[in-house]
Structure formats: structure tokens, C-alpha cells
Simulated scan of single mutants.
Amino acid sequence: MDSQERADRRRDDPHGAAVVAEEFGLKGARGWVFHHVRVGAAPGTVVVIEGPSGSGRTSLLLALTGRMRPTEGRAEIAGLPLPRAMAAVRRISGLGHVPGVSDLDPALTVAEHLRERALLQRRFGGSPRALPWPRARRTAEARGRIDAALKAAGLDTTALPKGERTSVRDLERLEALRLSVALALIGRPRLLAVDDLDLKLSDADRAAAWRLLRSVAEDGTTVLAVCGQAPEDANTVIRTNDNEEGAADALAETGRA
């Protein structure tokens, strides 16, 4: 499917979640974690949160995915208001790589991670109509989800040292990122969130990581990505910067060339 076909499909069937925030903020015991966040992003776009470590960027990502309660302003994810509909936002959003929240287990293999996520999806996120399906049909449906997610994440398991039996500890950083994205995509989220995208990546791998997220967005899923430096062609950027009070002011730029 080429870029034009993807764009046409997004218009006809907008799967991704629109992200809207106005004066969005979170205040903790030591002051503002982030505040004055303003953003408006259409479904199926990449929204970049750029800033140094400690500027509130991860907290903002978690707040916009319904996993941290804001204290001021308003936000809507796919029309769902925050913080009132935090549980509903969690159901339509998936976390890729977010250190301390959705870490991969280095002792498990790629296959074990995939099977576990598919099982959790079937038990807690699947349709009730699938409950009476025969076991063979449920297994085939789960395998189909896994294969589609791996393809979307660009992870070729046959190229790994031991295929799907490769341990996470033996994956390269970019491969681990692709696996994290694939695991999130098994749930077919409308919003995908990824933290520390450019951490410990070479220039070539960083470029590949951004191509991955653009591809996910082109397929219709809105992407929220945290990084230290946004790519030049990013069209929606939220910049977080520490100020003298320890707060993080953020402003989104849209339509950036």
C-alpha cells in the first residue's frame, strides 16, 4: 500500500485518535511537572514531545494516554475528555517502549512476549463474540494479530539469531524497540505512545525508528513519541523545557516544514 492509498483510507475510515489539549498541566509535590500544554493533532499523525530528560516529557505522555491524572486544563483523545474518561483513553491507547512502565523482560524470548500479549488481549481486550469460537479459530486469530503487528513494526523474526526463540537480552536496541511497538499494536490501539525514542540509537537507527513511527501513522494509528530532538520534518512538536521554577512549559507547533 503506497502513501496515497494510506491517506485515502485514513479519510474514509479514521482509525487514529485526534489529540487535543488546551492549558493542560500537572502539578506535583515539588511544583509543576508540565503546564500550558496546547496541541491539536489530527488522527493518523505523529505527535512529537521534545525536551531534555527531567522536563516532564514522560509524564505528559502518560497523562495524554490516560495513565496519569492532570491537574489543570483540558484534553481530549478521540473525543474522550481527560481526566474524566481516563479508563476509556487507556483502552484505546497502547504503550510501546516506556521505561519503568512497559519494559520488556530480558529473560523472556520474543515468542513468549508475543504469546503473552496475545493472550492478554484475548482475555481482556477481545470481543465477547469471540468467546464461543473453537480453539483453533482463536489460535489462528491470535497468530494473525501477531503477524500483522510484526509486519507493521518492521520486525523480521526470521532474521533474529534464534528466530522468535531469541531472548530479549540478545536483541539490538532498534530490534527491541520494534518488538515493543509490535506488542502494543497487537491490541490495535488508536493511539500508540513511545518514550525515549532516540535514546542510545545511532544516527542510522534513529532514522529507521522515525520511519517506523511514520509508517504506523500512515496506516492510521496516531503516534505520540518522546525524544531529545525532534526530526526536521516533524509536523506536530510539543517542546518541554525546564524553567527556573522547575516547571515544564510546552507549546505545540503544527504544520512545521
Rank of each mutant, 00 (worst) to 15 (best):
S3W: 06
R6N: 14
D8L: 15
R9Q: 14
R11H: 12
H15E: 12
E22V: 11
L26N: 01
K27I: 11
V33A: 15
V33W: 09
H35P: 00
A41F: 08
A42I: 00
P43W: 10
E50V: 03
G51I: 00
S53Y: 06
R57D: 00
L60M: 08
L61N: 04
L62S: 07
L62D: 05
A63H: 02
G66N: 05
T71P: 07
R74K: 15
I77F: 03
L82Y: 05
A85N: 09
A87N: 06
R91G: 07
R91Y: 03
I92H: 03
S102N: 15
L104R: 08
P106K: 11
A107S: 13
L108S: 08
L108C: 04
V110R: 03
L114E: 02
E116H: 14
E116C: 08
A118N: 07
L119N: 10
L120F: 12
R122W: 12
R129G: 05
L131F: 09
P134L: 12
A140D: 13
A142S: 15
R145N: 09
D147F: 00
G154T: 00
L155T: 01
L160K: 06
L160S: 09
P161D: 07
E164G: 03
R169D: 08
R173Y: 04
L174G: 01
L174P: 00
L174H: 03
E175G: 06
S180D: 03
V181K: 05
A182M: 06
A182F: 05
L183P: 01
A184C: 10
I186F: 06
G187Q: 08
P189T: 08
P189L: 10
P189I: 07
R190T: 04
R190H: 11
L191D: 00
L191H: 09
D195K: 01
L201I: 03
L201R: 13
S202H: 04
W210F: 15
R214D: 14
V216K: 05
T222A: 11
V223T: 09
L224N: 07
A225L: 02
Q229K: 15
E232Y: 06
A234F: 01
N235T: 13
I238V: 15
R239H: 10
N241F: 10
D242M: 15
N243T: 13
G246C: 07
G246H: 07
A247M: 04
A250T: 00
A257N: 04
A257R: 11
